[in-house]
């Protein structure tokens, strides 16, 4: 099936089986290996990407669903503030040591950046509980949540906390 979509701002056209998972298309056909496979069942959030602005698990999206759509992966979050510029959340995570083994981090970055951008747009500081609830679909098996939550709150407040 021919699929035309936008990935991280660039137009992409592919001929792939319609039920191939977006996760596999990203990693194998587009060489975007930042997106990781954790559970492959929508439980862990490691493969979180944005499709038309909404966070989804790329392991649960048949690529046919993306035809005409706009996909943003962790690689796209990296460049979203200019070439090679980190998203404020990435800067906060790096500074606060929010990454341990790293497997959950691409998903955490996509989900967290989406949340940070929304909070900044609305001009309000979320509670810790709201942050925890926003990343409830992202599992960190190092259980390193405290620093991740701190980094999200730090990024919402401009990284100067």
């Amino acid at each position: 099936m021919r699929i035309a979509m936008t990935v991280n701002g660039g137009a992409v056209e592919l001929d792939v089986p319609p039920f191939k998972r977006l996760l596999d298309v990203l990693r194998e056909d587009l060489d975007l290996t930042g997106t990781k496979e954790g559970c492959g069942e929508g439980e862990c959030g490691a493969c979180t990407v944005l499709l038309d602005g909404e966070p989804l698990c790329a392991c649960l999206v048949p690529v046919a669903r993306c035809d005409g759509g706009e996909v943003v992966t962790v690689e796209g979050i990296m460049g979203s503030r200019g070439p090679d510029a980190m998203h404020p959340l990435q800067a906060s995570m790096a500074r606060l040591g929010a990454s341990q083994c790293g497997i959950c981090i691409p998903g955490m970055v996509v989900m967290g950046a989406h949340f940070v951008d929304a909070a900044r747009r609305e001009g309000r500081v979320p509670t810790e509980e709201e942050v925890r609830s926003a990343i409830a679909g992202n599992i960190c098996r190092c259980t390193g949540y405290v620093k991740i939550v701190d980094a999200v709150l730090d990024a919402v407040q401009g990284g100067e906390v």
Partner: peptide, 24 residues
């Protein structure tokens, strides 16, 4: 196929096979 959150897991884990045709 609607949201895919059940169907994709069923197929991926081999609990069911997709037929030749899926209505999305």
């Amino acid at each position: 196929l609607a949201g895919g959150t059940d169907l994709m897991v069923e197929v991926e884990t081999g609990r069911s096979e997709l037929p030749g045709l899926v209505l999305d």
